[in-house]
Design a protein around this nucleic acid. Structure first.
Lengths: 189, 189
DNA sequence: AAAAACATTTGCCATATGACAAAAAGCGAT
DNA sequence: ATCGCTTTTTGTCATATGGCAAATGTTTTT
């Protein structure tokens, strides 16, 4: 739980009592490779914090292709915000790409913490804003760059991730086919 | 100012006194076509609300091309969050695409409102989260769709915007060249 | 170790998009 | 209406990427 506490304290201060309260609600959970953290068509029920492993957020586009919207790795929150906040069914699902260890909070517990701990809502908002800004910042450049540049940027940005994920997932994240990506890799060597 | 008040009240309740206080800080401002609302290399100094007109958020990529990251139109907030929140220089700039009428708040006034009005921070966070989620949702599909699909989606999503913006801006938003976009338009007719 | 299942690479060809330049159309100022 | 400037369209050709299928490589199961 140490990682979670460190992560939270980056965004604001809490006293020991508050931290302890948060930790009473936290449950460790293992998610095996390829299993789901949350599913499309359901309402997101948990907030998670990835201690170890990589997940991906996906959806099916109108051509029926499975698209990886983004990867989430260690020391990051994983939650389908739109679904969680608004109690609406999600159009996306979150799947473990590798075996994952996560710390989860149920929706009810999460709400209770928000109601109980003064300042917790501010911290949560900061965490979420930062994550969203990051998502936009990562996804946006993909639109205007060519495939090779996208791959190189990804490698630079996530050197630790790139060798732990299947080629096909990365290709769909980058918006290219898996054979194109394979050729790009060959050209780079 | 009616539009601004309506917009705000969608996200939470405020009493008349609180609304009045907010309005004392609000200043109307006209920005002519092609003028800047905020500039790259500077720290964002204002939060704006577009009453009329369209703006675009841009940056130069590493090839020196000007990229339009997104368009913002009527009844939306315009603020460079990363720069505004963290007091860091922005890498992006915001330019009026048409003549614009905006309501602006200086950073100091904005901060004062946050400190004074109970519940205002929650409303602001909701507004910002929603805007960020929307940005991700709009930008993401561009990665995996082909150019024609991107254009059609844009048309469907922003029928009121499409005829008020130059082709070149839209092309850079969609991640294609302006001649490709021109050809795509021809094929659709 | 062999077989089966899955992931990646490669070949071949079709197609979409880019690059560059010129022509055409649109628009504002006089 | 005309001129000059900007935006959009079009032509030509080069190139990147996609689609599909086969071959190769890798991992898992038995």
């Amino acid at each position: 739980m140490k990682e979670l506490v460190n992560y939270i304290l980056q965004f604001g201060n809490l006293n020991q009592q508050q931290i302890d309260l948060i930790l009473t609600k936290a449950k460790e959970k293992d998610i095996k490779k390829e299993e789901y953290f949350s599913e499309a068509g359901k309402i997101a029920a948990e907030v998670g914090f990835i201690v170890d492993g990589i997940m991906r957020v996906c959806y099916y586009n109108n051509k029926g292709e499975e698209i990886t919207k983004y990867f989430i790795d260690e020391n990051n929150l994983v939650v389908d915000l739109e679904s969680f906040d608004n109690n609406i069914c999600s159009s996306a699902y979150v799947q473990a790409v590798t075996d994952c260890k996560v710390i989860v909070f149920s929706k009810a517990d999460w709400q209770e913490l928000l109601d109980t701990i003064v300042g917790w809502d501010t911290i949560v908002h900061k965490i979420i804003s930062k994550a969203l800004i990051q998502k936009v910042a990562r996804r946006s450049p993909l639109v205007s760059e060519d495939a090779t540049t996208r791959y190189l940027s990804f490698m630079e940005m996530f050197p630790k991730v790139i060798n732990r994920i299947p080629l096909s997932y990365l290709a769909s994240y980058l918006g290219i086919t898996q054979s194109s990506l394979s050729r790009i890799r060959k050209n780079i060597r």
